[in-house]
Structure formats: structure tokens, C-alpha cells
């Protein structure tokens, strides 16, 4: 690694690798975005988070 990668860039690319889980979570929120409350889509988010955390650790 010659060039320094900012942690947030690494994070962004990890999130980018989980487009399927991201879409499921996004659809869950957007389906009824006038009634969003805390942890409305918790299960979807946790799946998404598991995916991008795994991708983040891999590199």
C-alpha cells in the first residue's frame, strides 16, 4: 500500500460491496418514510451491517 487510504474511503467501499442488503434496508425505510421511528428496520439493518463489517475486515 503506497498511498494512504482514509478509513472513511475503506468504509465506503465496504458499504458499496453490499448493494443487495443495502437495497433491502433502503426499501424497508422508503416503503413508508412518513412513519419512521427508532429501529423500524432493525433486522434489515443488522443484516446490512454484518455484510459491510465483514467486507471492511476482509481488506
Amino acid at each position: 500500500m503506497g498511498t494512504k487510504v482514509r478509513p472513511i474511503e475503506k468504509f465506503a467501499s465496504a458499504v458499496g460491496k453490499c448493494s443487495v442488503e443495502s437495497a433491502v434496508y433502503g426499501k424497508c425505510i422508503v416503503a413508508d418514510y412518513n412513519n419512521v421511528r427508532k429501529d423500524k428496520c432493525l433486522t434489515e439493518f443488522l443484516k446490512f451491517k454484518d455484510c459491510y463489517m465483514a467486507a471492511y475486515r476482509k481488506r
Binding site: F11, A12, V15, Y25, I29, V30
Partner: peptide, 15 residues
């Protein structure tokens, strides 16, 4: 927070 950043990214794409 990173959780919020990731969540915002997927909502941004969908919306």
C-alpha cells in the same frame, strides 16, 4: 456515526 452514514447511503439510493 458510521451506522447512520451507511443507512443514509442506502436510503439515498432508494429514495
Amino acid at each position: 456515526q458510521r451506522d447512520v452514514l451507511a443507512a443514509a447511503d442506502s436510503i439515498y439510493r432508494q429514495l
